[in-house]
Amino acid sequence: MSNIKLDPAVVARRIEEDDAADIFVLDVRNEDDYEEWRIDESTNVPIYDELLEYDYSTLEDHLDELPKDAEIAVVCVAGVTSARAAEFLREHGFDAQSIDGGMNGWGRVHRQYDLEDADGAEGVVQIVRPGTGCVSYLVHDGEAAVVVDPSQYVDQYLNAAAERDLEIVGVADTHAHADHVSGARRLAGELDVPYYLHGDDAGDLENVSELADGETIPVGGRELDAIHTPGHTPGSVSFRFGDALLSGDTLFLRSVGRPDLEDGAEEAVRTAASQLFDSLERLTDLEDDVVVLPGHFSDESVRPLATELGDLREETTNELLSYVADGDEEAFVETIVESLADEPANYNEIKQINWGKEQPGGDVEALELGPNNCAAN
């Protein structure tokens, strides 16, 4: 069987850029898997089990629904059944390729955006994982750089720094993550630079430079200022870098961080939600022209993910933030308690790794695949 593979990073770029109309993503996984986690604008024909048995009858029934004038990128779980489907489609005259690694490969894609054109965000590179909704950052001044919230794929940050002739002098996490395995300790260890994390989220970790509210991380001639913003976790911080606010999982563009992943008991959630409300009040007291750079996104298509705080206050897409603007803590807490979604997949095991209580095993990449579900609603 010939297997023409399509780089998932190329798919991500083409979906985002102007030639998106020239690519058609066909997902052949089962419907439940597709509904849980999928590539935006993809089309599902649930024939995964049939393809395992080399049964192409249902796919053949759908041929009239597929475009002849676009490249078809077929995706499955790991790239095996999608390769079978792509070959069948090519035999029937379609320009079809299989996405290399399937959704597993999609989850590893990272996209870089320099924010030089965003007023107030000079010296910030945003690194987005479109398949998982995770966002990390490379902040820099002169030849020095600090990485914030890196994924476990540390080469992405080493390469981003090398491309810009930067030396990474520190690595930081805004909090102990529950949705993805942090690469911060590994990256800091490989480079022999400090790893920064608030003490309340440090767990059993060793060799941590513990941050407290108001402390700074040097970045060339500038500083990354730590603002303690508990609620999502006890040790959550946001970082201010000039007029850029790296808000971690405290403030997103359309929601806020969920406060139930440390303790899901209702009283604990209410307490953490009240802390989160106070943290958001503190952040929303900042100037209107501060650029909010979140640690996650859901279905926002704008790139880079950046909105001035003043605009974010005025928009109606962030219901929970509107309660903060109105000073309505009761409505904020009740809305969070009533609208929490499913927890991130494997979040307890991921947190144990990020706290240093467990060592990552051979399935560490698979642990974080799927929707991040870190938003409160």
Rank of each mutant, 00 (worst) to 15 (best):
T43W: 12
I227F: 12
S301Q: 13
E358Y: 05
D149K: 07
P230C: 09
G220F: 07
Y34M: 00
V290E: 00
D213F: 04
L59I: 11
D69N: 12
E41I: 09
G107P: 01
V45K: 02
V45N: 00
D49A: 14
D55E: 13
I217N: 00
S151F: 04
V237C: 11
A161G: 02
D32Q: 12
E329Q: 15
Y153W: 14
F297V: 05
K5L: 14
A244R: 00
E319S: 09
A161N: 07
M103L: 14
L293M: 08
E65H: 09
V291I: 13
E262H: 09
L312M: 08
G93V: 07
A226W: 02
S236N: 11
F239S: 02
N30W: 04
S298G: 11
L320S: 05
S2C: 05
E16M: 11
I99V: 15
G257W: 01
T216F: 02
E41R: 11
G120K: 01
L312G: 00
I336K: 05
F94R: 03
D326W: 02
L89H: 05
E50T: 01
L340A: 05
V154I: 15
G189N: 15
H140F: 15
N372H: 15
S238H: 02
E190K: 13
R222Q: 13
Q126V: 04
L276S: 08
F297E: 09
L89W: 04
A161Y: 03
